[in-house]
Amino acid sequence: MAEVRRSAVATERISGLTGFERERRSEFSRAWRRFKRYRPGLAGLAFIGVLVVFALVPSLFAPYDPIAQDTAMRGAPPSWAHPFGFDHVGRDILSRIIWGSRIAMLVGLGATAIAVTIGVTIGATAGFFGGWVDSILSRFVDTLLAFPTLVLLIVLAAIIGPSLLTVIVVIGTTTWASYARVVRADVLSLREREFVLAARASGASQARVIFRHILPNAMGPVIVLATLGIGGIIILESALSFLGLGVQPPTPSWGAMISDGRAFIRHYPQIAIAPGVMITLTVLAFNLFGDGLRDALDPRQRE
């Protein structure tokens, strides 16, 4: 009895919402329940949460200024006061690692946002309009997908000149093809579905049909893909920084820190070890989170 009443209250509380949103909310809670069952995914989410907090307020956690140097401490090994030791110009590595999460998050989320925007727009256009628009865009997407991103990135970053903004924009504009492909396929099937046909019959504008009815339903796979993609982007960023084409000094970036440490692996290996571990853990966290999300949002995969 009590059980029933509670759910009645709950229904009442959300009754102010439109039917569409209500459907989504309950879908969300169902997805969350499914997600919770996948432990590694939860662990990933927790780690990401910590990183986000680090990225938002690094000064609260970093024990020292990440840029301040004490050159006399060049390469000094870990100690209690400086658990990760010092880098080659005498900066505290732990503080740089914590501040580095800000760059990783900025690049990971920023570039993904750009890629998703471009990819969804192009994929939706191709899927919705079909015909020659679709075949041109699809050929373009195929080519871009097959083209090694790192090569494109290197050419662009070398020519535009490396900076944080370049890295974000360049990664964003070269990694959208997979989103376009997924969205196109979804839109292709969605546009023939009853609720879309109904909306069209009732005279809704094309834009409204696309943005209100089709895209929201195609977003599930995009979110999963985006989550799984962030890890790859963080690796790309660090590879670019490693090659000297990424974020500029003295801004602490994990990839650049590994690059710094490369010359000193014989004498001060700690410079390169810590950021490498951080990159691995971060990418791992996003991938596990993405795996969990996929299982939760896309039950077909889970059989």
């Binding site: 840029i67 301040a68 140097q69 050159t71 080659h88 110009v89 070398a158 490396p162 090659l243 000297g244 084409l245 000094p249 003295p250 690059s259 710094d260 490369r262 010359a263």
Partner: peptide, 15 residues
């Protein structure tokens, strides 16, 4: 780009 010998020097002078 990637000048491991002099970039640190520039970073120190910057400070």
């Amino acid at each position: 780009t990637g000048d491991q010998a002099r970039r640190p020097e520039a970073e120190v002078v910057q400070q």
